[in-house]
Design a protein around this nucleic acid. Structure first.
Lengths: 218, 218
DNA sequence: TCAAGGTGTTTTGTATACAAGAATGACAAT
DNA sequence: ATTGTCATTCTTGTATACAAAACACCTTGA
């Protein structure tokens, strides 16, 4: 399945926004981007349109599109929703998970553990993502799965920063154990509660982190 | 705030899909639509792009865009997610709702009741939407509010059909009472459970309804 | 007869040209 | 000096023109 140029450009722009090349409030000039990517304005406009739908930029008619990074308040709100969606997933998964998927969950969690022991932040990040993805899928509700993946993707850059906080990986790991145990026991309520804490703690810690990083960023 | 033509076209197309002018699986021809709306292909393409992001159509690269109505399974999944999102809203709202908003909720519910007594389906539909919107807002989480409104909008045409089922309005009304009582009592868990039932019953009843309507549609 | 390949047509994707609205700056009037 | 208006210029929105990929049909060979 071949993707079109405008899709690749959208991805590239996403990256440029995430890595700070385009800061919050910046206007994204169509002709500038067109020359930068060596294409015409048309695919640029399609890419920007896609980004606006996913919420990364806001499009003001006849004025242009502007980068719109979520502020602290909105971020906390998003983490809250993420926590709830994951809680639902976990609750459903506890009731519906298959044996093979459960084994998979264990295996992935083991890989997480090894990454922690090796202090491999990137590795842990990947395995952690996989861990959550398994739970989404085992909710047995593919629409829910899609929604979870969408939001996870949106919060990705903020989660990533998180893991560098000292001790966060170990704590995260411990929370995983709770989740797995609850799911294995088919205790939906406990699984939901465990993962809710696991995710929402990230939101809470985040504005802590922001406060510490803000001076460095200026 | 003036909207651009492509936005109006997107809305129009949405309507045409909802009212059945374009059925599931139909290909939406760009030039055909362009002549129909008396515009060039460009705004048509932008409109189709928007619809594809919102999930109403699916875009296959180099092949065209096709109407993609959710099947029974996906619909039930979507209602399940809707129920959970509303449950979260209700739980949070029970803790966070303001006095004036609570009064508003009561007033709206009263208007619902009058609509039921008058057998005014359309009126009930509108007030019911308002009722739910108040709860979303009073969750105190505007991101959650947006997500709820988005999904509500997506399920709108299916909900609408529902109300025509005999006795559904009365049952719906009774469920509202439960929700209001629980929120007023600041009992988050009960409010969540009440609204979860209120919404998910729609999903369950829906494929019943589908089975009955299918022959008539053919 | 059927399959395989090629050609022509149709349709999407991209580039460019044109139109219209908004920002900027200068100038005039108070 | 400040404010309001007008014109220039820049940017977005739309139309059209072009390129390339997919589809359909036809021909040709076994």
């Amino acid at each position: 399945m071949e993707r079109k140029r405008s899709d690749r450009i959208a991805d590239a722009l996403e990256g440029l926004i995430f890595d700070g090349t385009f800061a919050d409030g910046d206007r994204l000039d169509e002709v500038q981007l067109a020359t930068r990517f060596s294409v015409s304005r048309t695919p640029i406009r399609e890419a920007l349109h896609r980004l606006s739908q996913s919420g990364l930029v806001v499009q003001i008619p006849r004025r242009g599109v502007f980068v719109r990074q979520p502020g602290p308040v909105e971020l906390i709100e998003m983490f809250e929703v993420m926590a709830e969606l994951e809680a639902v997933s976990a609750r459903l998964a506890a009731a519906r998970i298959s044996e093979t998927a459960l084994a998979d969950l264990h295996a992935t969690n083991e890989r997480c553990k090894h990454a922690v022991e090796a202090q491999d932040t990137d590795g842990y990040y990947q395995e952690n993502e996989q861990f959550h993805a398994i739970i989404y899928r085992q909710s047995g509700n593919s629409f829910l799965e899609q929604e979870c993946l969408r939001l996870q993707r949106r919060l990705q850059p903020f989660r990533r920063v998180q893991l560098r906080v000292r001790g966060r990986m170990n704590q995260s790991m411990a929370e995983h154990e709770d989740v797995v145990a609850a799911i294995e026991a088919a205790d939906g309520a406990r699984a939901a509660e465990a993962i809710r804490r696991h995710v929402s703690v990230q939101g809470e810690k985040f504005h802590h982190l922001m406060a510490n990083l803000k001076p460095a960023a200026e």
